[in-house]
Each structure stands twice: as C-alpha cells, then as structure tokens.
C-alpha cells in the first residue's frame, strides 16, 4: 500500500491550474512574487517596484512599503465615472475589488482564469478580463462595467445593446451576459457595422452554457443598426 503525503488540496503534481494537482495557486504565486520582490528590495532598496501600479502617481497608492507588501493599501478607482476609494491587498484582482469591495456585482467571476470572459469590463474603452487584471494597476484608468447606465445613460452603445438583448432574448440564465455585453460594446465603439464574422470574433472569448449564441449575433446586429 502506497503512502503519500499531500499538502492542502494539492498533491505536489505539476499541472498548472489544477487545484487538485498544483501546489501553488495563482494568488499564492503572486503573494510569493511580492515577497521575493520585497526581499530583493531590502538589498537593492528599490522597494516594491514590482507591484507598483502604472497609475502610481495617484497619491493613495503610495502606502505600500517594502517591508509588508501584503498590507492592505488604499486605492482610488474610477468606475463608470465615479471615484471609489477602498482598501485592497496588492495581489487583488480587479474583479474581486469590483465585486467584494465596491459591491458592483454585475461583473461576474465564472472561471477566474481567463477562459470564459464573464468578468469582461472596459478599461479606457478596451475589453479586458478583470479576473487577471491587478487592481493596483488601475488608478488613473477609466473602468466601465455593466452598471454604467444604471443611474443615467452614459453609454449609448451599451444601452442599445442592452435593449437588443431583451428584444432578441439573447440571455437565459444571464450569468455570462454582462461580460459579453461589455465585449460587444467595445466592438461597436470601434465598428458600427460589423460583419457576422467580426461579431463572432469579438465575443468568441465569452463562453455561454445556455448557448443562445445565435440570438447574441442577431442582437449585436440590431444594436449596430440602431446606432
């Protein structure tokens, strides 16, 4: 009878991303990377550069220190035109900060590893997976989520798509649709008369298990025609 020791949910195996077989999760990796950066910093006195946001001109992101890079730090994010100040861990991904810190739960987290697109938001108008975007990098950038039009309509492209989604019944359970709507918004902002192939390519990174893919194409075509 073989006897083996396994730590946590892992068994010391090799396959990246398999929780049952991988010792190190992505977040643990980030945490360790940060620790390495901190250790390096202690020698070189460069300090925390590895994690410093590109938007670090924002004064509130300077709270991180070289001695405790896991310490919660204040951060200000501009989401749907509204500045939000919150406290995050440097390893936090944008999707978690939106959902857990800001309670903007319209952005979904179906897979958390860049496979499904359910977490798609617009960053400076470009569709981005927020599950693999460090929130620390976001100060100074404009973030747009599915909630953008909920107070007043600030994005007419998104509004046209939302209306078409209703007419063409492009959503059933609806959990993946916010991400797909944001991807479609990015498409139509750059191309108001896309071909079917261009539409497919734009939302190909958004998985849907309910499978109303054809209604999605029809809805995007209708929204494009209405713009």
């Amino acid at each position: 009878m073989e006897s083996e020791k396994a730590e946590g949910s892992s068994a010391g195996s090799e396959q990246e991303g398999n929780i049952l077989q991988t010792k190190m999760s992505r977040r643990t990796f980030l945490k360790l990377s940060a620790a390495t950066a901190a250790a390096t910093a202690a020698v070189t006195t460069v300090g925390g550069i590895a994690l410093k946001s590109r938007g670090a001109s924002n004064a509130q992101s300077t709270a991180q220190t070289t001695t405790d890079l896991f310490a919660a730090v204040p951060i200000t994010l501009t989401v749907n035109g509204i500045p939000y100040t919150t406290t995050i861990e440097p390893r936090d991904m944008l999707v978690n900060v939106l959902r857990e810190n800001l309670s903007l739960t319209g952005t979904k987290r179906p897979c958390d590893r860049m496979e499904c697109g359910g977490c798609t938001v617009l960053i400076d108008g470009k569709a981005v997976y927020s599950c693999t975007t460090l929130a620390m990098r976001m100060p100074g950038h404009s973030i747009e989520t599915i909630e953008a039009n909920n107070i007043t309509v600030t994005d007419s492209t998104l509004a046209a798509l939302q209306a078409a989604w209703v007419t063409y019944d492009a959503s059933q359970c609806g959990y993946c649709q916010p991400g797909r709507l944001m991807a479609a918004t990015a498409l139509l902002k750059n191309n108001t008369s896309p071909t079917v192939d261009q539409i497919k390519a734009a939302v190909a990174g958004n998985l849907c298990r309910c499978g109303t893919y054809n209604h999605v194409i029809a809805a995007i075509q209708a929204a494009a025609a209405s713009l």
Binding site: T105, T107, T145, E147, N150, Q162, T167, D169, G174, P178
Partner: peptide, 12 residues
C-alpha cells in the same frame, strides 16, 4: 419578452 432579462443585462 423575458421578464427578468432587464435585471440581468444591467447587472442589477
């Protein structure tokens, strides 16, 4: 139209 779809496409 689907009654609950507006609440889904707005993230509400």
């Amino acid at each position: 139209t689907r009654r609950d779809i507006p609440s889904k496409v707005t993230g509400q």
